Computed example of a mutant assay.
Amino acid sequence: MPHSRDTIDIWSVEGRFQHLVYSPKGGIEGVLIDTDGVTTQFVFDRHDEAAAAAFAGLRPGQALVIEGAEQGPSPKGDAAHTVYRFERLDSVDGQAPEAASASQEIAGTVVRLNYARHGEANGVVLDTGDFVHTKPDGLARLGLKIGDKVRAEGRTQPLATGGGQVVEAVRVNGRRVAQAEAA
């Protein structure tokens, strides 16, 4: 006799990114999207850093297609909206997630320097709350100071505090951050 299998319905949901959902310890445990005026939540498996990274750098309003399995009722009470267990990010603004999040750009005015654990300046914090990480040698080469206008390009992810993003800068104000490799 064949074995019975539990089947899980995976739904593909389209909507607009609203914001990340944080865990009590400050990690990213899911996202909220707006699906035609209805709030929909996707939750990640615990310690799923890859899922959290897939949403790093997204801006509110971006069009998403996310796949997930609808969660059953919680013993803790009724949900305020539909909740899905996250399976996969299918697209961002109509593109594969890797292409959509390969590089982001942030801009603002330098309000302070940031320092590495050993005390050397390794980037700048902007008036937007974003942190531009340049590494100490990159910062020295760029010569950034408080009050400078900055436009930085690179991979981004949300800051743990929930306010702003960190960009691993590749270019700042059109200049490459890393020194060119010697041939």
Rank of each mutant, 00 (worst) to 15 (best):
V21K: 11
A54W: 00
A52S: 14
G147I: 04
E105V: 14
P60Y: 02
H81I: 10
E153T: 14
N173I: 00
T134R: 02
R59G: 06
A51I: 08
L126Q: 07
A99S: 15
E153F: 13
P158L: 11
A54R: 10
L159A: 11
A80K: 13
A100G: 12
A51D: 04
R112A: 11
I106V: 15
D130A: 06
E120I: 10
P60A: 07
E14G: 15
F131W: 14
V125W: 03
A182P: 08
Q179I: 06
G164Y: 06
L113I: 00
E168S: 10
S4K: 10
T156S: 13
Q95G: 01
R175D: 11
I33A: 01
P60E: 02
L20C: 07
D90R: 13
E67I: 10
L113Q: 13
P73D: 15
A160H: 06
T7E: 15
V65Q: 15
V111G: 02
F44A: 03
E67H: 12
G138Y: 02
G72M: 07
D78P: 06
A183I: 02
A121H: 09
I28T: 13
G129T: 10
K135L: 02
V150E: 06
G77W: 04
G119C: 13
L89H: 00
K145H: 11
A107P: 03
G162P: 05
E49C: 08
F42M: 01
V177N: 02
Q165A: 13
F17N: 03
F86V: 12
A51F: 07
L159C: 00
R5S: 13
V125K: 11
V31G: 08
R88D: 06
F42Q: 04
L89D: 00
E98V: 15
A100N: 06
T128C: 08
V166D: 01
G164C: 05
A100F: 07
S23F: 01
E29T: 15
T109Y: 00
V21W: 03
P97R: 09
N173S: 03
R85F: 12
T35H: 13
G119Q: 09
A178N: 12
A54E: 11
L126T: 10
I106E: 03
R176W: 09
L159S: 09
Q95I: 10
I10R: 11
V83Q: 07
G164H: 02
A152W: 01
G174H: 09
D137Y: 09
F44T: 05
A107Y: 00
G123S: 02
E49P: 00
G57V: 04
V166P: 00
Y115A: 08
I66M: 06
V177I: 03
A50M: 11
I146Y: 01
G119W: 08
L20W: 03
F55I: 11
G37V: 08
G15H: 04
A102L: 13
N173A: 03
A53G: 04
E120D: 14
A178T: 06
L144R: 09
P2W: 05
R59L: 15
P2F: 03
P97M: 09
Q41A: 15
L144M: 08
E29V: 13
M1R: 12
H133M: 12
L126D: 08
V13L: 12
G77P: 03
L64H: 03
